[in-house]
């Protein structure tokens, strides 16, 4: 009897080990499928033109060709693209976070008749696909004289619904007594927001900032439409341009140039990976 029981337990243990093993096998397979294109890109960026044209491919080139990056950088005004992307992303993120904080605070902490109705109006904006606004916004910006200007790239996309919603939740979850105390001490709403609400909501603000940074850095369609000279292109738009035949550069240079665009995003991702993933999961569950 005891041996039979032992055997059963042993079977269960083996079963668990096997299941763990097959889980790892499948997860490693998927990780490889997801990871390989990245490794392939990096590997290609260091190859010589001859090494690029070998099949089956080699993974580690004979010599690391750092000069691929120099050639890629000089094939187009990438310095300028970088500055443009930094300016546009920086301004966009700062303004959108400010707007999100102001709106979120107002909806969480300031009484106003019809506040809930206004909140619904704001949420309704989420139902409108941004792609619908391409032509109207182009026309509006044309009248404002903002075509091919930084303002034209930034302004249409700094209104905040998701961020305002997120921060409102954060501000609502704070104790009301704190705010009452601040009011009794004579603090106005702006002071309460700056000295009380925002510091307490720092993790949410940080996640929102990172998320907006990545989203704005990656944006392609709108800058493509609104810019029309090379010196105003952002990195993603410039990168696609470089690929066209007139630049005549090989896959190794193209992958090097792709890395220019990706490096800031990958840095942010690996530094704050856990925060970003948890933020996404939490946001989706609440929303």
């Amino acid at each position: 009897m005891s041996t039979a029981l032992y055997g059963l337990r042993e079977n269960k243990r083996i079963g668990r080990v096997m299941r763990g093993f097959s889980s790892h096998l499948f997860l490693i397979l998927i990780s490889l499928i997801i990871g390989m294109p990245f490794i392939w890109m990096i590997s290609t960026a260091f190859k010589s033109p001859q090494e690029v044209a070998i099949f089956p491919p080699i993974w580690i080139p004979e010599r690391l060709r750092w000069d691929n990056f120099v050639v890629a950088w000089e094939s187009a005004p990438f310095g300028r693209f970088y500055i443009n992307s930094l300016i546009v992303t920086g301004w966009g993120v700062v303004m959108e976070v400010i707007i999100a904080a102001l709106t979120g605070y107002a909806f969480a902490r300031i009484e106003f008749p019809g506040r809930n109705l206004l909140f619904m109006v704001m949420l309704a904006a989420m139902m409108i696909p941004g792609q619908m606004a391409l032509i109207p916004n182009y026309v509006t910006l044309f009248h404002l004289g903002w075509i091919n200007k930084y303002a034209g790239i930034v302004m249409p996309h700094i209104s905040s619904v998701f961020g305002a919603f997120l921060l409102r939740q954060a501000f609502l979850s704070m104790s009301g007594e704190l705010f009452d105390a601040a009011t009794i001490d004579g603090a106005g709403h702006l002071r309460s927001l700056l000295n009380l609400a925002l510091p307490l909501a720092r993790p949410v603000v940080a996640t929102l900032t990172l998320y907006l940074f990545i989203a704005k850095w990656n944006d392609y369609l709108w800058p493509l439409i609104i810019t029309n000279t090379q010196d105003m292109r952002t990195l993603p738009v410039g990168l696609v341009m470089v690929r066209s035949a007139e630049y005549n550069i090989g896959p190794e240079h193209l992958m090097a140039a792709t890395l220019f665009v990706l490096v800031p995003v990958l840095l942010v991702f690996f530094m704050a990976q856990r925060q970003l993933i948890d933020g996404i999961a939490a946001g989706a569950l609440k929303g």
Binding site: P37, Y220, P236, L239, V240, V261, L262, F269, I280
Partner: peptide, 11 residues
């Protein structure tokens, strides 16, 4: 998810 979609398309 966070990788520039243009870069994904290039790669």
């Amino acid at each position: 998810t966070f990788t520039t979609s243009v870069a994904i398309a290039m790669v």
